[in-house]
Simulated scan of single mutants.
Amino acid sequence: MFNIGMLLSCLPVIAVGILIIGYGMRRFAALKRLEVVGVTVLGNVLEMQTARNADGTSATVTAVRFRTQTGALKQAVVRTFASVRIGTQIPVIYDPAAPELAEVLPLRPGVFCASIVGLGVSFLGTAVFMLGLFAGFIPMIPHA
Rank of each mutant, 00 (worst) to 15 (best):
V117W: 00
L7N: 04
N44Q: 13
T80E: 13
L34F: 00
A127T: 07
M25L: 15
E100W: 06
I116P: 00
P109Q: 02
A82E: 13
V128Y: 02
A114Q: 05
I116Q: 08
T40R: 10
T62L: 13
K32Q: 12
V37I: 10
G125V: 12
G125A: 14
Y23H: 08
M140A: 15
V45A: 00
L73N: 14
L101R: 06
Q49P: 00
Q49S: 14
A76K: 06
L73M: 13
F112C: 01
E103F: 00
A59K: 15
V92R: 03
I21M: 12
A51H: 14
I21T: 04
A63W: 10
S115E: 07
S115T: 05
E47T: 11
F123Y: 11
I141M: 15
R27Y: 06
L101V: 00
G118N: 07
A63V: 08
A15I: 12
V117F: 00
A127E: 05
A127R: 05
V64D: 05
L119V: 09
G56N: 08
A98S: 09
V78N: 04
T80A: 11
R65T: 14
V16N: 06
L34N: 00
T40K: 08
G38N: 02
M1V: 10
K74C: 11
V128M: 09
G120V: 07
N53R: 15
I4Y: 09
P142V: 09
M48N: 14
L31T: 01
P142C: 12
T126K: 03
Q49F: 08
G5V: 01
A98Y: 01
A98N: 10
L107E: 04
S115A: 13
V36H: 05
R65W: 01
A51G: 09
V61C: 07
T80Y: 03
I138K: 07
I14L: 12
T57Y: 12
G118I: 03
G87E: 09
V84C: 06
E47D: 14
F66R: 01
T80S: 15
M48P: 00
V121M: 04
N44G: 02
F81L: 10
V61L: 10
G43A: 10
C10W: 01
M1H: 12
A114P: 02
L7H: 02
I93A: 02
A51V: 13
T60R: 14
P99A: 07
V37S: 05
A30Q: 09
E100H: 10
Q75F: 02
P109C: 03
F129R: 07
I4G: 06
V111F: 00
P12G: 09
F81Y: 14
A63I: 04
Q69T: 03
F66P: 01
Y94G: 00
L42H: 13
R108S: 10
C10I: 11
D95Y: 00
R33S: 04
N53E: 15
L107I: 03
S83L: 11
M1C: 07
G5D: 14
F137E: 13
G87K: 08
P106K: 02
V78G: 04
R33I: 01
I4P: 01
G5K: 10
G136P: 12
A59M: 14
C10R: 07
F123E: 03
A72Q: 10
L8C: 09
L8S: 04
S122D: 06
E100C: 04
